[in-house]
Design a protein around this nucleic acid. Sequence first.
DNA 1: CAGTTAGTTCTGCAAATACAGAACAAAGTT
DNA 2: AACTTTGTTCTGTATTTGCAGAACTAACTG
Lengths: 169, 169
Amino acid sequence: MCIFVPLLAHNPNRTKMVLTERHKELIERIGVFHEHKGMQPLVGRIIGLLLVHEDGEVSFDEIVEQLGVSKSAVSNALTFLQAKDRCIYSTRPGDRKRYFALKLSDWREDFAKELENIAEIQKFIDEVLEVRTEKNHEFNCKMKDFSEFLGFFKKEIPALFERFKRQQA
Amino acid sequence: MCIFVPLLAHNPNRTKMVLTERHKELIERIGVFHEHKGMQPLVGRIIGLLLVHEDGEVSFDEIVEQLGVSKSAVSNALTFLQAKDRCIYSTRPGDRKRYFALKLSDWREDFAKELENIAEIQKFIDEVLEVRTEKNHEFNCKMKDFSEFLGFFKKEIPALFERFKRQQA
DNA sequence: CAGTTAGTTCTGCAAATACAGAACAAAGTT
DNA sequence: AACTTTGTTCTGTATTTGCAGAACTAACTG
């Protein structure tokens, strides 16, 4: 018999959490929110479950049971989330299960990345300005204006986080 | 014979623009950029064409020809872009064609909307915090931290635009 | 009124997506 | 060695998407 297992195996924290209707409905809404961001449906719902779950980390088969989907779908979705660096798993001694959790700790970097990503349109604007003639000056001016703002915006991102820190203290 | 048409019909600005390989390749890249944002392929390419086109406004059938797609696809894509308020058309007296253009003028509002949209996750975070127990205090703290930042961020958006204006002058 | 132009709506299909279920692999258990 | 657990990979399929082509509408034209 295993030395470490018994205590952990009987740990009440490791029993399946009971989800209320409110939990389930919230998970679905978080799911569609992420669908709109281009993710596949199940991925969004897994994010919802990991957010809502009391333990913060949920085993593979609990995800399968709670969301009522196949193992293969969950496996693929978790592979995707890990590839995107949004999710990691940890293990316990004497327990072969993997407990999956959101990488909530680096929300700052994630958010900064998202901001930089939406500002990435600047590269295209600038390329467009290179190929455009001066035939339509007004149009070009508006684009230059936008490009300059995007440059300004990118520079401001770090300052934004700093101001938040100061304001928080 | 129509009174106004001849002059406009022979206006060199209204002849089909010749797209170089560079133009075409840039349009494609702008297309996939927008695809990644969740838009359908053709919509992204139309945005690319409208950005790159010298006139800034392009007739329905020139879009069809330049992109080599069907009228129905273009019609649906333009309906979508207009519904999303990213595009408008204007007409000329004695010319039944519609000339489509990007609403480049309100990039400020569009960009602000995008920023608010990515901060919309705050609503879900707050709802999640409402349903969570205090079982996992650290997890909750990180979420609260993130929510507070998102609130701070939303408030900062108008100030950001103002600072840009001042810096510009 | 027959014919043209400009665009929309409908119908159908080819390809992509998202998932289920089965087969499979790896490791532990008895 | 047979069996169980934990998950992955493969295969098939229902659904959705994105578009083409045809039919249609509306307005002008001769």
